[in-house]
Simulated scan of single mutants.
Amino acid sequence: MVLLAALAVVGLRVLASRYEHTITRERLLAPSARADRTDLDGPINYLLVGSDRRPGDIGPQQRTDTILIVHIPAGLRTGYLVSVPRDLLVTIPPGAGYPGGEDKINTAYEYGGGGQSGAQLLSATLARLTGIRFDGAALVDFAGLRNVIDLLGGVNMCVGTEVHSIHTDRVFHPGCQQMDGAQALDYVRQRYDLPGGDYDRQTHQQQLLGAMLKRAGETRLRTDPVQLHRLIQAVGNSLTMDTNGIPVEDLLLAMHGLSAETLHGVQVPSHAQTINQVSYVVLDGGGRGLFEAVRGTRMPEWADANPRWVTRL
């Protein structure tokens, strides 16, 4: 999204072709999760995964903190960021040496080995759960994202309740405030000190994406080519993408009308439940309706009918 905003102000085609090589390419989608079309007609569904590790990294503890389905209805003028709860109880299919079984959805990336194979197992799990076939996927490196936020000059985040970081000695006080990359990523990864727990964390992550998109549109990139170069390189270096055969240039051009004002944050209707002394999130009946809306053309109608689960960013 920040890449989109940055390129939009200075000429999409020229810069997209210049910086496309900075983005790592991998096949992040499993065959069962991949859309069978290679065009941008109709709704677009993208899988966005946030992780501390990039494809090619090995080792334990490669769970992902952020799983988002980015749904853009036909017309490409509005977008919905659907946050999938990290503790959602799902059936993970066999893959990458994992025999399959029930567990929290954020373990699918770990069971797949992280990186490309982890993303494939996660995408197969989501496709099985939702029936959605994705037009592309992106794996975002949190460390690289911190650098992007700093190059933007920070972002404005509005804190609703006081939050004590479990990672640092920071205390986030209520009110709108400017945050640098380290502060913003620390804030949006908190969940234990929030009234709504992980649901609040999901909203904060959605708000961060909106804040980054807004900030990128505000910066004077056209008159600062050095800063533009650094920003786009940082964005590209923080991404690993699977565009399903569509050039990044065409993807950005198709979505250049999106802005922070046209984005909506969506949470999956669900509830917390303890099973065998383990805390999970369990899908509600409304979650099936959400996935059906994302698969088809009725997401705006679903959002209007379910305001509890929708936030304008």
Score class of each variant (00 low, 15 high):
M1Y: 15
L4Y: 02
A6G: 15
L12G: 09
V14N: 09
L15P: 01
S17I: 01
S17H: 11
R18H: 12
I23W: 09
T24A: 14
T24G: 10
L29V: 09
A30R: 05
P31R: 05
D36T: 12
D36G: 13
D41H: 14
L47S: 04
L47Y: 00
V49E: 04
G50I: 00
D52K: 10
P55K: 03
I58P: 00
I58G: 13
T64E: 05
T64M: 06
I67T: 12
I69L: 12
V70C: 06
V70K: 03
V70T: 10
H71L: 10
I72T: 05
L76M: 13
T78M: 14
P85L: 10
D87Y: 08
G95S: 02
A96C: 08
D103T: 13
G115W: 02
S117Y: 08
G118N: 02
A119F: 00
A119Y: 01
L121V: 06
L122S: 03
R128D: 15
R128C: 03
T130P: 00
T130C: 07
G131N: 09
R133V: 02
D135E: 13
D135N: 15
A137Y: 02
V140W: 08
V140P: 10
D141M: 05
G144N: 01
L145Q: 07
R146F: 00
V148R: 02
L152H: 02
M157R: 05
C158V: 07
E162M: 08
H164W: 13
H164K: 14
I166C: 09
T168R: 11
R170L: 07
H173T: 15
P174I: 06
Q178W: 15
M179I: 06
A182I: 09
Q183Y: 09
Y187H: 04
Y187C: 01
V188L: 02
V188G: 01
R189L: 04
Q190K: 06
R191C: 07
R191M: 07
P195T: 07
G197D: 10
R201H: 09
H204M: 13
Q207V: 11
L209G: 03
E218I: 01
E218C: 01
R220C: 12
Q227I: 04
L231D: 12
G236R: 02
T243N: 12
G245Q: 09
I246E: 03
P247R: 15
E249M: 15
D250I: 04
L252M: 12
L258K: 03
A260I: 01
T262E: 08
L263R: 09
H264G: 01
G265Q: 02
V268K: 08
V268G: 06
S270Y: 08
H271Y: 10
H271V: 00
A272G: 15
A272W: 07
Q273G: 04
N276R: 15
Y280D: 00
Y280F: 12
V281G: 01
G285M: 04
G286D: 02
L290I: 04
F291Q: 04
F291I: 06
A293G: 00
V294A: 06
R295A: 07
R298H: 12
W302G: 06
A303M: 11
A303F: 11
D304G: 12
D304T: 13
D304Y: 08
P307T: 12
V310R: 09
L313Y: 14
